[in-house]
């Protein structure tokens, strides 16, 4: 293990380390703590300039309720859910199929196709922006929920396929081989042999894609204009304009936008990290 375990340096070093950890954490999360403190302040505190000291009174519920009653935040949150969930389901489902094909079968274009999905995952969004926007306008998908989740599902399929293909490739191939010898149909091998084994990969992808799509801001601006289809990330920006100088409300709204991915992360931490660090070890 590197660095050398702190226990071996004696109890004093260990105690010092443990005492320093919370200090380091507070410094690291200082911007977040500061904005949280702001979000529970009262308007009076903000106006009198007490933005950094201890709040004179706590207005947690008032502020968060105000965000919902004075703005379209509830609508934005609902839109975000309606965009994110179908994106996750579609992209993960497509990737299971495509990843299986690219990992199990040996055919000449398997590797080029795989690299196509990988490359698509790295391109800048701007190169897609004008055609996708134009296509959405032409097909009536502009400023709709469906227009957004269809795009996200297609784009995230690249990353999901990369992930799934590598995951399935690492499974023992004998399983498929022996099923074939038994005469099991190909789709049944997929459904009954491989799919149960990739459940951890599905879980990891689901949390990752949820976070990626939830946090999207660019496409929300490109593919929507009104309140009816805007997700919370774009909504927070709109609120920022609406609540000028009401920093307690702006910060409450920002934190609200951050809650779902954070909850998702803490509930499925192991899968989340396994997904992100895929390939970081050999």
């Amino acid at each position: 293990m590197f660095p050398r375990p702190i226990e071996k340096s004696g109890p004093a070093a260990k105690a010092a380390y443990q005492a320093f950890l919370p200090v380091a954490l507070i410094l690291w999360l200082l911007p977040l703590l500061a904005i949280f403190l702001t979000s529970i302040r009262s308007a009076a505190d903000i106006n009198s300039g007490n933005v950094f000291g201890w709040p004179s009174e706590f207005a947690l519920i008032e502020n968060y309720a105000a965000v919902f009653t004075q703005s379209a935040a509830a609508q934005y949150m609902l839109n975000s859910v309606l965009i994110t969930v179908p994106s996750v389901v579609i992209s993960v489902a497509l990737a299971c199929l495509a990843g299986y094909a690219l990992a199990i079968y040996r055919f000449r274009v398997a590797l080029p196709l795989f690299f196509l999905f990988v490359a698509g995952n790295f391109i800048p969004f701007q190169i897609l922006m004008v055609p996708v926007r134009d296509m959405s306008v032409q097909t009536g998908l502009y400023d709709t929920i469906a227009g957004q989740f269809l795009f996200h599902a297609a784009f995230q399929t690249g990353f999901c396929t990369l992930f799934m293909r590598n995951f399935i490739k690492a499974l023992p191939f004998d399983l498929v081989e022996s099923a074939r010898i038994e005469g099991v149909a190909e789709w049944r091998i997929f459904w009954y042999v491989v799919l149960p084994l990739v459940r951890p990969a599905i879980a990891a992808l689901a949390v990752l894609i949820f976070t990626f799509v939830w946090n999207d801001f660019f496409w929300a601006n490109v593919l929507t204009q009104g309140e009816s289809a805007k997700p919370i990330t774009a909504g927070v920006r709109a609120l920022n304009g609406q609540f000028v100088n009401n920093w307690h409300l702006v910060s409450a709204a920002s934190l609200l936008a951050a809650i779902p991915p954070v909850v998702c992360f803490f509930l499925m931490q192991r899968h989340f990290i396994a997904g992100l660090t895929l390939g970081a070890v050999k």
Binding site: L29, L32, T211, W214, N215, F217, T233, A234, V236, R237, S254, L255, A257, A258, P261, V262, F265
Partner: peptide, 8 residues
């Protein structure tokens, strides 16, 4: 910090 949206 990585989990939070860049907007936030």
């Amino acid at each position: 910090p990585f989990v939070i949206s860049q907007v936030v």
